[in-house]
Structure formats: structure tokens, C-alpha cells
Simulated scan of single mutants.
Amino acid sequence: MDVWRTPEDIPADLGQSVVTVGVFDGVHRGHHAVLAETVRHARTRGLTSVALTFDPHPATVHNPDRPVKLVATLDDRIDRLAAAGIDAVFVQHYTLEYAQASAESFVRNQLVDQLHASLVVVGEDARFGKDNAGDGALLTELGHALGFDVILLNDLGEPAGRRWSSTWVRELLAVGNVEKAAEVLGRPHRLRGKVVHGFQRGRELGFPTANLKGEELGEIPADGVYAGWLVRDVPMTNAAEYLPAAISVGSNPQFDGVERTVEAHVLGRADLNLYGEDVAVDFIRRLRPMVSFESVDGLLCQMDEDLRNTALALGVPTAGRVDPAEVTAI
């Protein structure tokens, strides 16, 4: 899949295309329905399918004091658009100046002149242009005037239920309901980041962890302990390795921590050296809230139970604590 970040990146011989437009944060099931329709029509017509997306998130640009935490990183978004079958993605750098374009100007200058749209596929609630003045009716009207077709898909969501949306995913993650979030997304919620050094308390207790932290992680689920997978790329291949992990989210109240982190302990592994490596963490099930215990022994008993429950949730063999002396990470 091609990724274009400036108009100069667009091939001169692009020809006509089928275009869909959206932030596509998380690329949830509603997005997938729109993308599938875009790809289907592009292939039927023998044209290029193009997804126009925006970075940073428009809501963050318009309200910088209340930035939106993304459900997925831009790189993951691009990967998922590729997996959906899209031929090319235009990542439009979103600014307040860009947002001043009228709805008609956006359609004429970007969709038609720049991306050569012969068909535009969007959800029926799509809005565009300055102050979101453009809607499906205007898009259809402009299509008749400028020579492109329009498909407006009906609101997409659960039967007789709520519409699938990134907002819904954020609400579910805020209360730790990663299982329902996975239903909306169509896959487990994922965080991606670089493994950094922590206080190494887990290593001393027999639970070495890969630590992720920072705003760039995106939408972190509510504090608690989760069962999930640590996912790492296999060098020199396009494959990924999924390692069963007990995942702790929070500030570590047992040791009076203040910084919120994501710590993943891979079951039974003392031989992993992940520092500096970019990894992903997939959340499968919330096991319990984050609490403080009266003693370290009480914490250890609960962590042993967390390991057993993680193995049960993931359908993998149970593993106990590792020997701190065998941990190879430095």
C-alpha cells in the first residue's frame, strides 16, 4: 500500500479513484464496513482505492487544552487500512488553516482535483469543510455538479443497539471493559511503544516486566491487571511473535508510585531482553482492579493468582514466578 503525506507524493498517473474519508481512529467495525465498500467498488471499477485520513486528530487541533488520546497510533492505523485492502492512504496534516476550507472547496480541491475521485464512499453521518458545514446531502449535490458518484452507508452498529464509534471504545477502555471494546473494534485493543527501564521491582519479586509509558501510547485502559499478549516483530521476517502476558496498568500503589505505566510480564520467561524494542500489548480480559496490599507477601500471593488467571484466560499453560537470578535483561 502507498502512503502519501504531501500532494507531491501522489503519482502523476494516479487516474480516477474511489475515495473514503475519515480519521479512522482505531479502525473499528464501522470503519471496516466503509472500507470494505470502498475496496469492493474500486476493484469492480478497476480503480485505485484511497483513504483520506487526518493527523493530528482534528478535535485535538481545535481544542488543544483537551487533546484526544488516540485509540491506535498513526502507524497502526495505516497498517489496518492496508489490511482492509486499501491501495493508498493520504495522511493530511490537519491544521487550523486547513480547517478553514469551505465544504465545496474541500470537495473540489482535494477529493476531485487532488485525489481524482470518481466515487466517494462515506457513512451517512459524514461532515466536512469549515465548521463541519458539509453533509451527505451536500456531498451528493456536489457529486452531480462535479461528476463523481456518492455512496452514503447507513449508520453502522450493533443490531438495535449503539453505533460503533471511537468514542464508544474510549468510554469502554476508561472503565477497563477491554472485552466489549474488542467487540466494537473487531479485535483486541492494542497499545504500542518502546520498552523502557523501570524500577525493576518486578524482577526482584520474580515477575520481570516490559515497561511502556508516555502520552504516545494512546488510550490506556483503566488501572488494573489484565490478561493479554505482548507482541514483538520477528527480525528479518514479516511475522509477529505473540507472548502470553499478565499486564499491570497503573501507578503501582503498593510502592507509592506516581507515574502511570503499562507493565507486561511474559509468563514463565526470564530470558527476554526487550529494552529499547518497539512492542505491542494486546488486552484480552480484565482480571481485577489495581489495589494496595497490607504486605509484599499479600501482593505476591495475588500475583501468583494473576498468573494462573492469565493462563486460563489465554488458554496457555500455567507458569509461576521466575528465578530473579535467571533474568537476562540488563
Rank of each mutant, 00 (worst) to 15 (best):
L96W: 02
G134N: 09
A137V: 12
P159A: 08
A88P: 04
E158H: 12
Q92D: 00
D155V: 15
E158T: 13
E97I: 11
D135Y: 08
L115A: 07
A99H: 01
G147N: 00
V150C: 11
E158W: 13
Q100R: 14
A103G: 06
S105T: 15
S105F: 08
T95S: 14
E104N: 08
A160K: 12
D131N: 14
D125T: 05
Y94R: 04
G134R: 09
D149E: 15
E124V: 11
T140G: 08
D155Q: 14
L153G: 03
F148H: 06
Y94D: 02
S102C: 01
L152D: 07
F106L: 13
S118V: 09
V112F: 01
L152Q: 03
N109Q: 15
A117C: 12
A103D: 06
D125F: 00
D155N: 11
A160W: 09
Q114T: 13
A160V: 12
R127E: 05
N132V: 02
V150R: 04
F106V: 14
L146E: 10
D155W: 11
F90V: 04
A133M: 01
E104T: 15
L111P: 03
A137F: 01
L139K: 08
L138H: 08
A137Q: 06
R108Q: 13
S105A: 15
T95D: 00
G147W: 01
Q110S: 07
F90Y: 15
R127C: 03
R127D: 01
L111F: 07
E124I: 12
E158K: 15
V121T: 06
A160Q: 13
L115V: 05
I151N: 07
A103P: 03
G134D: 03
V150D: 09
D149T: 06
L156R: 10
L119W: 07
L119N: 03
I86H: 02
D87H: 14
K130E: 09
L96R: 15
L138M: 14
R127V: 09
G129W: 10
Y94N: 02
G129F: 07
D155I: 12
V120R: 04
H116Q: 13
E104S: 15
